[in-house]
Design a binder for these strands. Structure first.
Length: 914
RNA sequence: GGGCGCAUAGCUCAGUUGGUUAGAGCGUCUCUCUUACACAGAGAAGGUCAGGGGUUCGAGUCCCUUUGCGCCCACCA
């Protein structure tokens, strides 16, 4: 019938790739698609987000979907507002994670280890891996509809960012904020690298507390009982500590104790750190393998012994145990001690065991020479930035978490014994032994001029480069046009789980290197959990793949689910049912759109030439009201109110609530009620049809604009159809200034109320209630849906409105418009009248058709009781201090309600008496 | 040990300056393939907003407290 025959269900599969290609080819993702002014409008402050760069390790997970949905929403919203909006995409080399994957892959496919392959060859393989997985992950991010500017894409190991890393390192080095030295660090024996405190995860595990005797030198009987959870570390003990005031052991302080099985003499010392009540009240001190012991050792000048090597095997310090694995040693040593009569007992004990976040194996505290960042000075500035409100964290409660971490921050171990990453830019001279640290690779030693230089073999912690992300991606340290215009960025949106790892470090680095906060707002979203509420993660094996979900329900459905189902900072569970429900919403949008478009297309045939366009081509305003139906006024008032609400909620970062409101408006108000009203208005033809089509078009247009940041694909597709349909119709005027694509269409502007809205909304609400009431009655009466009813409406206060509206809306509830009477009074006649009370309106049906059943009597009684309860409550309320102390409008509202209840109750009572 | 969050309908959750009779989706029960949509329409059932106390004319919302669950930080062997 028309060229706008759209399929009955929304076909997201064919639509999504086509729409994304259209956007990308249109250059819409760039802040401006004016080739002469690529995004730079000095008059406007841009809105900028740096993407949390996904790792090039593997595939998409729901965390990615979450941040893409969230950030794309923000970007699209600002873009539509006409603000230059830049979303910088990129990926992260993810040192440990990627290296592990590549190693695993090498072992699987070529059966070689990285050591066998050598550094250079290994890095070649790693780069090949990167190329493959980079393309995979960015492809998937495109599939999510991400409107980021791919022309500005970055990778943490690319040339520009490497330069930034080098610059940052050298600056800190020159300021004395980077140092190298032996410290107690977390050593991952599996990965054979140091890891930072943040990369250690603690897990409660059942273990044992081992009690044994520390024999005192020169005595066969004197001993101090000591308890430990890690007996193997006995081999590295350099003291036994007791509390200075402990009467039991005071006498031993100053004497020597003998290390079991080794016979090495170590001092008995007194230190207040020891808790007398715990264990035996005596503590073995292993400065080489325990952070607390290390500190005690420092206080007492104890030697530090490393009894474990890089592979967590016992060193020569362990004498006869040298070469044993740490856990094998634990067993053997304990058995030997048992044989030697040194064991007291073992008891079950719950341990808090440190594991490597990536490798999973137990981390061993060890003394190792590593590079560190002296973090205190950076942390102080970062703390101040948030305290002073230069950076806002949403939700606010995370500010406290941030403060707490920043205030207790410890120096950051930044060197990793890996190959995949930014090499530490320090060279050691073979001749003079000194270090050279420069921006450009040095050819000679800065101290003695020797050319015998060796670069430090280690690489930097991945987060060292991530910390520079917001500015390194924009060209820093160069003062590029991008850097000058787009930095500092606006919004840092990410999961709360990387607040410390990443957000905190970006703030510190931004302030240190650029002198500015790298962003003004931090928005932290919650984590996605599976249907059982368990946090999704690869290691737990429950990380579901978003791809099949998108295959089945479409990207829009998944995005809508994540955006509307979550609140800032709170975790959400993702279930198939939710996504399915939102797929249904996408389909609802599609079908409402189909109806509107077919209505517009049908205008051709109605022949509207005589009506002229003048009354309809201008903006709807108060002057239009006299030509609008009640439904028109109502939907327009509701829409405008929605636009105001969405704007307010978006400004307050309440995206979920905004989405929910649009959903409700679109489905309940527009599709369920207005579209139904519009069907009849269209059928009237002529100006009324034109008027109605215009309203349908306007409401759909604005709804699609509001929805676009959340569900970009279906809205873009439909809006294109709407635009083309309008341009080919008598309503062409309406769409003549619209751009070619919704993505760059203007955001609906909130307008203030004009004063007429409340009355129209209330009137329509009454009409809705009347028809709902009649439908309810029909269900109770089990009426044939086709049966048209005759009815008499009696109302005092709404007489005129009802006289106008009831016949026209009769079909809402299957009334016969020919047999509808609206009047202000009739005589009760139980023989011929069957009454229904809706608010303050009585509706009578011919009693010949049915009588009041006991069931209805019960319902009426229930309503009456409910009214009575409300009346009592309100009378009591209005008789209390409320009437005096509450604001006048609030009181008046309650008075009006009381009056309405009284009227309703009177009518219900009359019903029962019939 | 310190901090934070959650507890609202059978299930999953909204409810952000305290102000109608606390909402939605799913599920359940009845009808209907009505010319946009059965991925739908219409109707219905279902809640002492975890317990206790307080502030207030008024509390799901603010304060205190108890209980249960979860998370983060710290890491007493």
């Amino acid at each position: 019938m028309t060229e706008y025959q759209l399929p009955k269900t929304y076909d997201f599969k064919s639509t999504e790739p086509r729409i994304y290609a259209m956007w990308e080819q249109g250059g819409y993702f760039q802040p401006s698609n004016d080739p002469n002014q690529p995004g730079f409008d000095p008059a406007k402050k841009p809105f900028v987000i740096s993407i949390p760069p996904p790792n090039v390790t593997g595939e998409l997970h729901h965390g990615h979907v979450m941040f893409v949905a969230m950030e794309d929403l923000m970007i699209r919203y600002h873009r539509m507002k006409g603000i230059p909006a830049l979303w910088v995409p990129g990926t992260d080399h993810a040192g440990i994670a990627t290296q592990l994957q590549v190693e695993k892959d090498l072992l699987r496919t070529e059966e070689v280890t990285r050591e066998e392959l050598g550094r250079e060859k290994f890095l070649e393989r790693a780069w090949a891996w990167k190329v493959k997985y980079h393309s995979l992950i960015t492809q998937q991010i495109r599939r999510l509809g991400a409107s980021c500017d791919w022309s500005r894409e970055r990778f943490t190991l690319d040339e520009g960012l490497s330069k930034a890393v080098r610059e940052a390192f050298v600056r800190l080095y020159e300021k004395g904020l980077i140092y190298r030295g032996p410290r107690l660090i977390n050593w991952s024996p599996g990965l054979k690298t140091a890891v930072s405190d943040l990369e250690v995860e603690y897990a409660e595990e059942p273990g044992k507390l081992y009690y044994f005797k520390y024999m005192l030198a020169g005595s066969k009987t004197d001993f101090i009982p000591v308890a430990t959870t890690r007996p193997e570390t006995i081999l590295g003990d350099t003291a036994v500590a007791v509390h200075p005031d402990d009467k039991r052991y005071k006498k031993f302080v100053g004497r020597k104790a003998l290390v079991p099985m080794l016979g090495r003499e170590i001092p008995v010392i007194a230190d207040a750190y020891v808790t007398r009540e715990f264990g035996t009240g005596a503590l073995k001190i292993t400065p080489g393998h325990d952070p607390n012991d290390y500190e005690i050792g420092q206080r007492h000048g104890l030697p530090v012994l490393s009894m474990l090597d890089r592979e967590a095997k016992v060193t020569e310090i362990g004498g006869p145990y040298a070469g044993l694995d740490r856990f094998v040693c634990r067993e053997k040593l304990w058995a030997d001690m048992q044989a030697a009569g040194l064991v007291i007992k073992e008891e079950p004990y719950t341990l808090n065991v440190p594991h490597s976040e990536r490798g999973g194996e137990i981390v061993e505290p060890m003394i190792s020479t590593q590079w560190f960042v002296k973090i205190q000075p950076l942390a102080e500035a970062a703390l101040k930035a948030v305290r002073d409100g230069h950076i806002t964290i949403i939700p606010e409660r995370f500010e406290k978490v941030y403060y707490n971490w920043m205030e207790n921050i410890k120096d950051w171990c930044i060197s990793r014994q890996l190959w995949w990453g930014h090499r530490i830019p320090v060279w050691y001279c073979d001749d003079c032994g000194k270090q050279t640290c420069t921006r450009a690779d040095p050819t000679q030693c800065a101290h003695c001029g020797s050319q015998q230089l060796r670069q430090d073999p280690d690489v930097l912690d991945t987060w060292f480069s991530s910390g520079l992300w917001p500015f390194s991606t924009l060209g820093w340290p160069e003062e590029t046009p991008d850097y000058k215009y787009f930095y500092p960025t606006t919004m840092m949106e990410t999961g709360y789980d990387i607040l410390f790892f990443w957000v905190a470090r970006m703030i510190m680095d931004g302030l240190e290197f650029t002198g500015q906060e790298p962003f003004s707002t931090v928005y932290l979203h919650g984590l996605i959990r599976d249907e059982l509420g368990v946090k999704m993660s690869k290691s737990k094996g429950n990380a579901s793949d978003p791809a099949p979900l998108m295959d089945e329900y479409g990207t829009d459905a998944l995005r809508f689910t994540l955006l509307v189902g979550s609140t800032p900072g709170n975790d959400m569970t993702l279930s198939l049912k939710k996504v399915e429900g939102n797929r249904n919403f996408a389909n609802k949008i599609w079908n409402a759109g189909r109806f509107v478009i077919s209505a517009i297309s049908s205008l051709q045939k109605i022949g509207t030439q005589e009506s002229g366009n003048q009354a309809f081509s201008q903006n709807p305003d108060t002057q239009s009201l006299n030509t609008w139906s009640l439904a028109d006024s109502w939907i327009w008032a509701r829409l405008q109110s929605l636009v105001r609400e969405v704007e307010r909620l978006f400004q307050a970062y309440q995206y979920g609530e905004a989405g929910r409101q649009i959903y409700e408006f679109f489905w309940n108000d527009f599709a369920d009620w207005y579209v139904e009203a519009a069907k009849r208005q269209m059928a009237l033809g002529g100006e009324r049809a034109l008027q109605t089509a215009q309203m349908l078009a306007r409401v759909l247009d604005i709804s699609l604009r509001l929805l676009h940041p959340i569900t970009p694909f279906v809205t873009e597709e439909l809006w294109g159809h709407l635009r083309r349909a309008l341009l080919a119709s008598p309503l062409a005027e309406l769409a003549k200034d619209w751009p070619k694509a919704l993505i760059i269409a203007s955001w609906p502007e909130p307008r203030p109320e004009e004063g007429w809205e409340a009355e129209k909304v209330a009137d329509f609400k009454l009409i809705q209630n009347i028809h709902s009431g009649i439908r309810n009655l029909r269900t109770e009466k089990k009426l044939n849906p086709r049966q048209r009813l005759s009815a008499t409406f009696v109302s005092g206060r709404n007489l005129e409105m009802l006289q106008q509206q009831v016949p026209g809306t009769a079909y809402f509830s299957g009334l016969d418009p020919e047999k509808v009477v609206v009047t202000n009074a009739i005589e009760y006649n139980p023989e011929i009248h069957y009454p229904l009370v809706i608010d303050t309106v009585e509706i009578y049906f011919p009693a010949s058709e049915w009588g009041i059943s006991p069931k209805e009597r019960t319902r009426i009684q229930k309503e009456l009781t409910e009214s009575q309860i409300q009346m009592d409550r309100l009378e009591k309320l209005l008789g209390s201090d409320f009437a005096i102390k509450a604001p006048a409008p609030v009181v008046q509202k309650e008075r009006d309600r009381l009056a309405a209840f009284q009227e309703t109750a009177a009518k219900l009572k009359a019903q029962l008496e019939l």
